[in-house]
């Protein structure tokens, strides 16, 4: 086997090792590459900034373990902005784990003097996906009689202000896909189309491309895609955290994959040319 063929068939374990190093080294000693804010994230930030102070937001924590590294930092960064604007927050979750993540992230609001039940609430998990979201949109307390902590929702001041989805000044879904939960299409249908509530999305990288169409059509006011968007948002709200820390490792891992792809293709072309020349 000549070198060109070897370059096209490098042992996968070599790649695994290099990938582990590409992530581990910048994690241990950061390179400090810095992150520029992209137009997509700036647009999302500007949209939230343009909302009147003291409004109400409903946030869907629609994700499971495995995607919390993308979506928890996004949630925390945006909660800092909502907290500074005194926007009240109602959290719901279409995945069981989502309610737990919501509980962790919402703690940030206490830094801004928020009081549970009055300024924010974690309603917990709902079963039934889109149809239940539609029922929630018509009458939130009909779906959630109790919140995540076991309180009667009808006794909570924040829920007395919310009679339907229309009472929210914005909706947000932190989403890792529709399998087993409520996806982004469902949120567009039930929040934007049915109740005309402006929606922003925080999604994993996987969902970024397919949801960009909603941003271009104006049905979604902004989209945050993956850890990179979280890092950018952390800069905008001036709260550098997990997102920013991960960007150096993300850089090196992407670079490694691109190098391998280029290497494989270059070897294929050179090998073809060599075979053509020999013939």
């Amino acid at each position: 086997m000549d070198i060109l063929e070897k370059l096209q068939n490098i042992d996968k374990r070599v790649f695994y090792l290099l990938m582990a190093l590409a992530i581990a080294i910048p994690t241990i000693s950061p390179l400090g590459l810095g992150v520029d804010v992209t137009p997509a994230v700036q647009r999302t930030f500007d949209f939230v900034a343009s909302l009147p102070d003291g409004g109400r937001a409903v946030i869907g924590f629609d994700y499971e373990p495995g995607d919390e590294i993308d979506l928890n930092p996004q949630a925390k960064a945006i909660l800092h902005q909502l907290g500074a604007k005194k926007i009240k927050v109602v959290a719901i979750a279409s995945f069981p784990a989502g309610a737990m993540f919501a509980e962790q992230c919402l703690a940030i609001l206490e830094e801004y003097g928020y009081e549970y039940g009055k300024d924010y609430v974690n309603l917990g998990h709902y079963a039934g996906g889109e149809a239940t979201l539609a029922a929630f949109a018509n009458n939130p307390t009909a779906i959630f009689a109790k919140d995540w902590r076991g309180n009667d929702t009808s006794s909570l001041p924040i829920m007395q202000e919310v009679k339907s989805m229309k009472d929210f000044t914005m909706a947000m879904t932190l989403n890792d896909g529709p399998t087993g939960g409520t996806g982004t299409h469902e949120w567009v249908r039930q929040a934007v189309m049915a109740h005309n509530v402006p929606l922003i999305m925080g999604v994993t990288g996987v969902l970024a491309a397919s949801n960009e169409t909603y941003v271009q059509s104006g049905q979604c006011k902004g989209i945050l895609a993956g850890l990179r968007a979280a890092a950018e948002y952390e800069q905008l709200v001036n709260k550098l955290a997990e997102g920013t820390v991960g960007m150096d490792a993300q850089s090196m891992a992407h670079l490694l994959i691109v190098i391998f792809v280029v290497l494989g293709n270059a070897a294929m072309f050179l090998s073809k040319r060599a075979k053509g020349g020999a013939a």
């Binding site: 490098i10 790649f15 590459l33 810095g34 992150v35 520029d36 990288g205 993956g226 990179r228 960007m247 150096d248 993300q250 850089s251 090196m252 992407h254 670079l255 994959i257 691109v258 391998f260 792809v261 280029v262 290497l263 494989g264 293709n265 294929m268």
Partner: peptide, 30 residues
């Protein structure tokens, strides 16, 4: 990606090029 992303025809080349640009463009080092 390393094994399958080979520019063997126009479609594969388009996929490969856009994929690589986005992979680099999404990170600071790009």
């Amino acid at each position: 990606a390393y094994r399958a992303f080979r520019a063997k025809n126009a479609e594969a080349a388009i996929l490969l090029i856009t994929g690589c640009i986005v992979m680099l463009g999404r990170v600071p080092i790009g």
